[in-house]
């Protein structure tokens, strides 16, 4: 007997049903979040070469630059990741606004954390901060003088990243901007990292509190690691 073929589907392919479902959209945000957290962590580890001395940082910077086309692949990937993270967040936000059009007159944020409630705000400020950071140290248009800081490394002329950073953070308002911007990143991650475990279903009742604690600790560690550089510059530890 020939069995009837399984019923054909009409409508979009299930992959799209998943992608634009409530949980699908969140999953995209969580997965892109993982990439961004890994990037932020790697970036910090690279930054720490500053404490090993001028040549180490410049060597690290030069190696990144020498990746050539690969660097652009990485950059485009990061751009796409950030783009997806923001795009899907905005889609979710729009739906969430529609799902609760009427707010309570007496409102009480019972059970929620300040980090969770400020995700969109902290995210947008962090975005602004990243744009400034790129303009500052990557495109170097905030202080055009950065474009012509060169030094010798192993007999080659390379960009003097070390001097650029020291000069950059010697400017007090700029350092404060970094410390504040990074604080918001810390807030964002304080909710975001734990959240991605929940969204991807990688938690349960028992380990959930542990994940939340580790998340907060990790966000603070990143924060302290990052701001240690402008603070070291301002206090003269790194000259």
């Amino acid at each position: 007997m020939i069995s009837a073929p399984s019923q054909s589907r009409s409508g979009p392919h299930p992959i799209f049903l998943w992608l634009f479902s409530s949980i699908g959209k969140k999953t995209v945000v969580a997965l892109s979040g993982i990439v961004l957290v890994l990037f932020v962590t790697g970036h910090l580890l690279g930054n720490f070469t500053i404490y090993l001395g001028k040549d180490w940082l410049n060597w690290y910077a030069e190696h990144l630059q020498s990746l050539g086309p690969m660097l652009w692949v990485i950059r485009l990937f990061m751009l796409a990741t950030v783009g997806a993270h923001i795009f899907f967040t905005m889609l979710l936000w729009k739906e969430n606004q529609a799902a609760r059009p009427k707010k309570y007159i007496a409102s009480d944020p019972v059970g929620t954390s300040v980090f969770a409630r400020t995700m969109r705000l902290s995210g947008l400020i962090v975005l602004g901060f990243i744009l400034f950071h790129l303009a500052h140290f990557t495109v170097r248009i905030v202080d055009p003088a950065f474009q012509h800081m060169d030094t010798m490394l192993d007999g080659h002329e390379v960009h003097d990243c070390y001097r650029m950073v020291v000069t950059g953070f010697s400017n007090v308002p700029v350092s404060i901007l970094y410390i504040v911007g990074l604080f918001l990143l810390m807030m964002h991650l304080s909710h975001g990292i734990g959240s991605l475990f929940q969204t991807l279903g990688l938690t349960n009742r028992r380990i959930h509190p542990l994940i939340e604690t580790v998340t907060r600790a990790y966000a603070w560690l990143l924060y302290i690691g990052y701001i240690s550089i402008p603070i070291s510059v301002l206090t003269g530890i790194v000259k």
């Binding site: 979710l92 739906e95 799902a99 059970g111 969770a116 959240s195």
Partner: peptide, 29 residues
């Protein structure tokens, strides 16, 4: 037309039956 979960955990805080938010992780998975 219900909204999406942003892991606020307000639901868990008010649930009279004490349902833990970890069930949402189960659902997501």
């Amino acid at each position: 037309g219900f909204g999406n979960c942003s892991n606020y955990y307000a639901c868990e805080a008010v649930c009279p039956a004490g349902i833990p938010a970890s069930v949402i992780a189960h659902l997501n998975r």
